[in-house]
Amino acid sequence: MRTRVKICGVTRKQDAVAAARAGADAIGFVFYEPSPRYVTPDAARDLVNALPAFVSATGLFVNPEAQFVESVLSQVPLDLLQFHGDETPEFCDSFGMRWIKAVRVRQSSDIADAFRDYCHASGLLVDAWDPDKYGGTGQAFNWSLIPDSRPLPLILAGGLASDNVSRAVAQVRPWAVDVSGGVERSKGIKDVEKITDFINEVHRVDETD
């Protein structure tokens, strides 16, 4: 199975295009104003329209009002929604679109509970726990907490970079990996060489299986 790659927190058109050309399957755009990687709907529309065919545009939200999500969707041609806060399954399911849910992991039961509660999701993203942040911590977590039984596609995030992603893919065997800070020069500014190295490392593991 080929491991998919999502490059998240993109804020510049050249970074979105470079990530797609390097082989990214999905690009993430953050619609959460406290984040240093936040993009406005106007900016995101231009970024999404620059993407080539077959690269998915994902919109990341954290505890949004439904009206805000609907406003973004009316302006930006997103393919997938990503909910990274404390949203209920009913809320996530209310927009008539495919969605994934992020869970911050402290113990294995966090993942098992999320698989059960968010069973209508298109995937479950597992990330490092931080009491003050809903993501983008740059920290990995104990991958051995991830169960082998996975009723949904599992997306691995948290502290990934080119120097550890091959080990992560080999150990966890996720459906996809999600990276933001690990391929940046500064927050929101991606590094093309780091993106390319990261994707190459993922593909290297796939090719040796």
Rank of each mutant, 00 (worst) to 15 (best):
L154S: 07
P153S: 00
I189K: 00
P174F: 05
R185S: 15
W175V: 13
K187E: 15
N164Q: 07
D178Y: 14
P153A: 01
A168M: 01
L156A: 02
K190H: 01
G188N: 00
L160Y: 10
P153H: 02
N164T: 10
R167G: 08
G188C: 03
A168V: 05
I155R: 00
L154H: 04
G182P: 07
K187N: 13
R173A: 12
I189N: 04
W175S: 13
G182M: 06
V169S: 11
V177K: 01
G188W: 02
S162Q: 08
I155P: 01
A161T: 13
G181Y: 14
V179P: 06
R167K: 12
V183E: 13
R167C: 11
S162I: 07
W175H: 14
N164M: 10
V169F: 07
S162A: 14
A157Y: 03
G182H: 01
V177L: 08
A170Q: 15
S162W: 13
I189Y: 05
R173V: 08
V169P: 12
I189R: 03
G159R: 05
G158P: 03
G159L: 03
K190N: 00
D163Y: 07
G188M: 00
A157T: 09
V165N: 04
Q171W: 09
D163Q: 07
A161G: 12
K190M: 00
S180R: 07
A170S: 14
V172K: 05
A170Y: 15
E184F: 03
G158T: 00
V172G: 07
R173E: 11
P174Q: 09
D163M: 03
V179Q: 04
R185N: 15
S180T: 12
D163W: 08
V172E: 09
P174H: 08
Q171T: 14
Q171M: 11
L156K: 01
K190A: 00
S180N: 14
A176T: 14
L156E: 04
A161F: 08
S186E: 15
P153M: 00
I189D: 08
S162G: 05
P153K: 02
A170H: 15
P174C: 08
W175R: 07
D163E: 13
L154A: 01
S186H: 03
L160R: 09
Q171P: 06
R167L: 08
S166F: 06
D163K: 06
K187W: 15
A161D: 15
G159N: 03
S166D: 12
P174K: 13
P174E: 09
D178V: 15
V169I: 12
K187M: 14
I189P: 01
V165A: 10
L160W: 05
R167T: 07
G159C: 05
G181L: 11
I189M: 06
A168L: 02
K190E: 01
L156T: 06
P153D: 02
R167W: 06
